[in-house]
Design a protein around this nucleic acid. Structure first.
Length: 1000
DNA sequence: GCTCTGCAAAGAGGA
């Protein structure tokens, strides 16, 4: 067996930031003139410390070049928060190329003597942004092309899989389960059958259009090699050829030929996060290995990396193993080496985790980390807007590029962003290729791409590890239940003290770690139940093999949510295909939406009666909306003003469309909104009104779907499919094209997220109201760049596509008139006399009035009077704390105070919530507490928003009581307008201090 | 100056 020894990774690293030094100068120091945005350094979570897990902040960077000697980089660093106690870090022998700038956070490994660290060829590592964990595959793929590595991090999930990949995944699964259980021929065959003909990989097979038998055939070719490997490395290692493997305590230096015996499998898919090396990854197999050599045997716990493809023993494969040896350091003694196991042949290669290879890989990691964190920059001191930075350079290797899965994104970015940069040069042969591959895009499209790419970069969260909510000091109790394949129910008990309710909620995503160092990120999953001191979680891994006394912590996992989807959609929008071209024309270039003339051409005669029946239940504008949608060739926007029956309208629309034989994709940003519509729809379906029955999972289970053909049938038989906008990554949407797509809550969804479902439909309907709250954007810069503009708002300028639902069934006329005056210009009308005149029913009012005989409480009488549907309580003279009353409020702190007070009065039936959370809902009586009570303070931005005020005042059906200090609130233009109106209608009263509020 | 929804993930091979 030919085994290579200690392959030295000679990697040429590219650097194209500003401080590359000139070698003609004798001695000079450059301070960096690029002011990059440093997402780590600016983060308050970066905790500086000394010791083993040190974190230093870089204060100054100097490049030192002496004639005739190699260049060095000197870093002035500190681990003290006050930025005193400076230390020096000297980078040599290639480490000086690490693109570190002042302000960066670094981790140092190695020796430090009297305040000076030396990182050179022989010892030490510098880890740039150690809290940015990069996966083993990202780093090993960056060897060939760093640009591709960075692009696939950003456009995660935009690479479609291949048949070989799926076969690879299944082979991994079979091998991993076999070696932990039973590697006999009979059992392995049985397992292979169970996995291939089971449900686990059906969706992937459907997506790739593969049949189970075809996959089984490929799998079977591998199985003999499984047994050969087991024979060679588990049962009869004596028969094995010797391999070259040198470990530090392996005796004499020449004693490097040994035989390998795998004695025990300790873990499968072991997940390790290493904030020491800034790495993360999953180790296929963690095994106890005995190394037999002349001077005896020694045992190590080592990583095995499985490969089902061609037996290449390539740098990429070997690098992955070397990175896993580094990851292993978090959990156990240095394995110093690992193995590459090629499943096709059963051959196993040792891979030594030698210092020089580890060093080169860490340098590579630092470069990838640099590019990921410096994706934007601010070029001038005066101008503060961020700009897109260049990606790692395009490599000059057409063979590699030809098969690259990121080619589209690579060319797109070059064309839209980099071609304008003087500093970026492309391989000449590639320039015409880039131009050709992007020629379908107009300048407006490239601009749209750049803008939205920048917008999503500014709010990208790169760092996994945050000092967030955590419940610690937990031990595992009871048995672990395997609820379904790969889903393990765990129970944790707090060792002391109760679990604070706010820290973990049912349904939250959690990361389970050991409290002990090195046990970070053991498993991820969801919170099932929280009670007192106990938590149950559904985790992706079974943790019962860990020592009984392991102390755990559960962290709320916010992850990097939502950035993958928009980047993916943006990339898709720029593709050279008819669906994308159409959307570009409509969305970017505002092409006028078209409508057909006559309903008769879309309405099949046999559906006429059904449609007429459904229309009977609708009002005039709702009927108009139905007509408009049926006539549309491109899209329709339905403005659903408050209380105008959006859900009813959507239901009717779905029913009419499917009666006409159209397929419909129904989506919304939130699952609850999708559920609402489905629940209403379920009533008409004459099936059990529990929507659980309609989930894809449940349908497959109840019909015991076992083959790809069955699955295909199920998918094709559903004329109406509902999902959240993020959920359109489901395989069903990869092949199916719907006639219509309806997007609910469209004015609250970010443009690029809203785009997702539109790719799989011929026409779309957006339902929303831009006078209510827009998409939530936390990042101020992203907001300035226009991120909160929903697709609904953007397309609204094409008025011919807009239908307004103006007849509302929620508010009585007095309440409605406020909103009409404020934003709807009188368009809103009551659905009936009954709605218009409805007042609140207070059965105990008479009795209560007697109790309120006291003149000082006469204001209360006025407020309670059902014939006063709108009332503004002026707290100006009363001096009453605004915190004394309230149900909805713009401020969460106010709500907390109110909730606490109500709890004291044992009143928990009244729902207290923010204006934002109340959007889309209503109540008979709404009390709005505006809180503000001073004029001179800084004005908050919350009350300046017309849309928020509009939402606040349109939640009440019968009675709207607003509380606040009139002069304070008049500083806000929307409230000023409202108060002016109320004044003219004599709807403002003053009130005195009240002591009890349990009257409602 | 304070409003908060979304979601699995690293790797599965190919040249």
């Amino acid at each position: 067996m030919g085994v290579k020894f200690g392959l030295y990774l000679k990697l040429s690293l590219f650097l194209h930031v500003g401080w590359l030094f000139s070698n003609s100068t004798v001695f000079f120091v450059i301070s960096c003139y690029f002011s990059f945005q440093k997402k780590v350094a600016d983060s308050p979570d970066a905790i500086l410390r000394n010791g083993l897990n040190n974190r230093y902040r870089v204060l100054e960077v100097s490049v030192i070049q002496r004639n005739g000697s190699d260049p060095e980089k000197h870093l002035a660093i500190t681990a003290s928060p006050s930025l005193e106690d400076r230390e020096l870090c000297i980078l040599r022998n290639g480490w000086e190329s690490v693109p570190v700038v002042p302000g960066d956070i670094v981790h140092l490994e190695g020796q430090c003597s009297s305040g000076t660290w030396v990182i050179n060829a022989q010892s030490g590592y510098l880890v740039l942004y150690p809290d940015l964990l990069l996966s083993g595959t990202t780093i090993s793929s960056s060897i060939r092309c760093m640009r591709r590595a960075v692009l696939s991090e950003r456009f995660r999930g935009s690479e479609s899989g291949s048949p070989q990949m799926l076969v690879g995944t299944i082979l991994h699964d079979i091998f991993q389960q076999s070696i932990t259980n039973d590697l006999t021929q009979e059992k392995v065959q049985e397992l292979a059958n169970k996995i291939v003909y089971g449900q686990k990989y059906l969706k992937e097979m459907y997506l790739l259009n593969m049949k189970q038998a075809q996959i089984m055939q490929e799998i079977e070719e591998y199985l003999p090699s499984f047994f050969k490997w087991a024979e060679d490395f588990m049962h009869n290692p004596a028969n094995q050829n010797k391999m070259q493997l040198k470990l530090s305590n392996g005796g004499k230096p020449e004693d490097v030929s040994s035989k390998i015996e795998v004695v025990d499998i300790l873990d499968i898919e072991e997940n390790i996060w290493s904030p020491r090396f800034g790495l993360k990854g999953k180790i296929d197999v963690t095994a106890r290995v005995k190394i037999h050599c002349q001077s005896g045997a020694q045992s190590r716990v080592m990583p095995l990396e499985l490969k089902s493809g061609k037996e290449s023993n390539s740098i990429e494969h070997r690098s992955q193993v070397i990175l896993y040896t580094l990851l292993s350091l978090e959990r156990r003694a240095d394995p110093e080496a690992g193995f590459l196991l090629y499943l096709k042949t059963g051959t196993m290669y040792p891979v030594s985790g030698a210092r020089m290879d580890r060093r080169e890989l860490m340098k590579l990691r630092n470069h990838v980390a640099f590019y990921l964190t410096h994706s934007t920059y601010k070029s001038d001191v005066g101008r503060q807007n961020s700009q897109l930075a260049a990606l790692p350079p395009v490599i000059d290797d057409s063979q590699t590029c030809k098969y690259c899965s990121q080619m589209h994104n690579c060319f797109l970015y070059s064309r839209a962003v980099e071609q304008k940069m003087a500093s970026v040069a492309f391989p000449p042969a590639l320039v015409p290729v880039i131009d050709r591959e992007t020629q379908h895009l107009k300048p407006s499209h490239l601009e749209y791409f750049s803008l939205w790419y920048l917008i999503f970069l500014t709010c990208e969260v790169l760092f996994l590890i945050k000092a967030g909510d955590c419940v610690g000091n937990m031990i595992r109790v009871d048995e672990v239940h395997e609820v379904s394949e790969g889903q393990y129910l765990h129970f944790f008990q707090r060792r002391n003290g109760a679990i604070s309710g706010t820290n973990l909620l049912v349904g939250d995503r959690v990361v389970v770690s050991g409290e002990e160092k090195g046990l970070l990120g053991l498993a991820t999953g969801y919170v099932r139940e929280v009670s007192g001191t106990k938590v149950s979680c559904l985790l992706g891994r079974n943790l019962s093999n860990l020592p009984k006394n392991t102390v755990f912590r559960l962290d709320h996992d916010e992850g990097d949510v939502g950035t993958g989807v928009p980047f993916k959609n943006l990339s898709k929008l720029m593709k050279d295909c008819p669906v994308s071209e159409r959307l570009r024309n409509l969305i970017i270039d505002f092409q006028k939406p078209c409508f057909i003339q006559h309903l008769s051409s879309v309405l099949p005669p046999e559906a006429k009666e059904t449609v007429a029946n459904i229309l009977k239940g609708l009002n005039k504008p709702q009927k108009q909306a139905m007509k408009q949608v049926l006539l549309s060739k491109d899209y329709t926007l339905i403005v659903g003003m408050p209380g105008t029956g959006k859900t009813t309208t959507i239901c009717a629309l779905v029913r009419i469309l499917s009666a006409c034989g159209f397929s419909v994709l129904l989506t919304s940003f939130t699952h609850t909104a999708v559920d609402n519509v489905l629940l209403k729809l379920a009533k008409f379906k004459k099936v059990h009104p529990d929507i659980q029955k309609y989930t894809e999972e449940e349908i497959c289970r109840s019909r015991s779907i076992k083959s790809v053909t069955d699955l295909e049938e199920v998918y094709n038989s559903q004329p109406v499919v509902a999902t959240s906008c993020m959920g359109v990554n489901h395989p069903i949407f990869a092949q199916k094209q719907f006639d219509f797509c309806i997007v609910d809550e469209a004015s609250q969804i970010s443009q690029l997220v809203c785009l997702g479902p539109l790719f799989c439909s011929k026409r779309f309907v957006l339902v929303g109201d831009h006078q209510q709250l827009p998409p939530l954007v936390l990042n101020a810069e992203a907001r300035d760049l226009g991120m909160s503009e929903s697709l609904f708002k953007r397309l609204e300028q094409n008025q011919n596509a807009v239908v307004q639902l103006t007849v509302q069934y929620r508010m009585n006329s007095k309440i409605m008139s406020l909103s009409n005056m404020l934003v709807y210009e009188g368009k809103l009308e009551c659905g009936s006399e009954k709605v218009s005149n409805a007042t609140v029913n207070l059965p105990n009012l008479k009795k209560l009035k007697l109790d309120l005989g006291d003149a000082s409480k006469s204001w209360l009488k006025e407020v309670l009077d059902p014939d006063t549907p709108v009332c503004f309580l002026n707290t100006e003279k009363a001096g009453c704390k605004p915190s004394d009353i309230g149900i909805i409020s713009p401020y969460r702190h106010q709500l907390k105070t109110i909730t606490d007070l109500m709890a004291k009065w044992k009143e928990n039936r009244v729902e207290v919530n923010t204006v934002d959370k109340y959007q889309g809902r209503d109540k008979s009586i709404i009390i709005v507490s505006f809180v503000r009570n001073s004029i001179d303070e800084n004005l908050g931005s919350l009350l300046k928003d017309w849309r928020r005020l509009n939402v606040a005042i349109t939640r009440a059906k019968h009675k709207l009581v607003m509380v606040g200090c009139v002069p304070s609130l008049c500083c806000y233009p929307p409230l000023e307008k409202l108060l002016c109106h109320l004044q003219s209608q004599a709807m403002i009263s003053f009130f005195s201090i009240i002591h009890k509020c349990n009257i409602l």
